[in-house]
């Protein structure tokens, strides 16, 4: 880290490198911070995110665990309750199902059940989403489940810079945080600030592309797809503002409102199945609180209500692509025209 400030400012990292940098910086900052997970040490993680950390920090801080998700999450929680911050990795978020007691009944509720007298400062890194033929038990997008459990914060990092800044905030946060990382983003590149204190606060969304006709909400792997759709739609004369909530809990209502004040139209994209996805919550917030700002009905563009199939062509059919996102935006624009001409 001897680069000049200018070089640091311009340096580009992959999403995986950005996550690793956040872990390294936070482990250096707090010598008690521990990492736990299956194959995170010697193998450096299935996706290489934790490569080199064992060598750098030693086996007492980078703990390879057995395949025991429930015990791993309970262990991370127990250490955190004694003031030892931990970051546990769930290799595929599908495996969080094996640790649901510790996440939902224990971690989420400890502070509340004890009347605010305890806190559990720990992070669960959840590797999520499709990755091309990973099929039904290694591809799910389960983030909405956890948003339905009060006591958990839910972060969805979609760019390398966000991955670093949000993970650092999550680690320093005094509450349990679930940090969702998308497999298909690990190799994406972007500028990443170098500073040890380059934190992005939880609860602040980000305008990923400015626009004036319609607000397109997207996160994780749907964000790059939404940006491509927005670029294509610009050629058709539709100005799309792409807005990334960055954290689902806490959710940046004010940020969404600011965007809707500009556009008056809302399309929400998610990779997860449509039914009870976080899209539905965003749509409900907009309908309840921002209705006067809306010029057209809200549109959701979501995964289908199916398990994830294996065949690549089936998988691509199930999750929204650029064309389906663009079609959703066009529909909202048409609806707006129709309602305007009908009045």
């Amino acid at each position: 880290m001897t680069a000049t400030p200018k070089a640091e400012k311009e340096r580009r990292l992959t999403y995986a490198q950005a996550i690793r940098e956040a872990l390294v910086e936070e482990m250096e900052r707090d010598p008690s911070l521990l990492l736990l997970g299956e194959d995170i040490g010697e193998p450096g993680g299935v996706f290489g995110v934790t490569q080199g950390l064992l060598q750098r920090f030693g086996a007492e801080r980078v703990l390879d665990t057995p395949i025991s998700e429930e015990a791993v999450i309970g262990t991370a929680l127990g250490a955190a309750l004694l003031g030892v911050p931990t970051v546990a990795e769930i290799m595929f978020s599908d495996f969080a199902t094996l640790a649901m007691d510790q996440i939902v009944n224990q971690a989420a509720k400890f502070r509340y059940m004890t009347g605010g007298r305890t806190s559990a400062p720990f992070v669960i890194r959840m590797v999520t989403g499709t990755a091309g033929a990973t099929a039904a038990q290694h591809s799910q997008s389960l983030e909405a489940w956890f948003t339905a459990t009060p006591g958990l914060k839910v972060v969805t990092a979609s760019t390398p810079a966000d991955a670093k800044g949000l993970l650092k905030s999550a680690i320093r946060d005094p509450d349990p945080v679930l940090f969702f990382e998308h497999k298909l983003l690990y190799n994406s590149r972007g500028a990443v600030p170098a500073g040890v204190d380059s934190l992005i606060p939880l609860g602040e969304g980000r305008v990923a592309r400015e626009g004036s006709d319609v607000t397109l909400v997207a996160y994780l792997y749907m964000l790059p797809r939404a940006l491509k759709a927005a670029e294509a739609l610009a050629g058709e004369g539709i100005s799309v503002e792409v807005w990334d909530p960055r954290t689902l809990v806490p959710f940046d209502r004010a940020g969404l409102r600011r965007s809707l004040e500009k556009t008056g139209r809302l399309v929400i994209v998610q990779e997860a199945p449509r039914r009870n996805g976080f899209c539905a919550e965003i749509a409900a917030i907009a309908a309840e609180e921002f209705f006067p700002l809306l010029k057209a009905p809200i549109k959701r563009v979501c995964g289908t209500n199916t398990p994830m199939p294996y065949a690549p062509e089936l998988e691509q059919f199930v999750i929204p692509d650029e064309e389906r996102i663009a079609a959703g935006v066009r529909e909202v624009m048409r609806n707006a025209v129709r309602s305007a001409s009908g009045s």
């Binding site: 309970g74 127990g78 004694l82 030892v84 007691d101």
Partner: peptide, 29 residues
């Protein structure tokens, strides 16, 4: 759910077996 960390009581538990992994984490700390 009675708990008091200062007394070394991480907590009773409403889930059968729920406290066992948490004690392992305390052991790690």
């Amino acid at each position: 759910h009675i708990a008091n960390i200062e007394l070394g009581i991480i907590g009773a538990n409403g889930i059968v077996g729920g406290g066992i992994p948490i004690a392992v984490g305390a052991g790690l700390a």
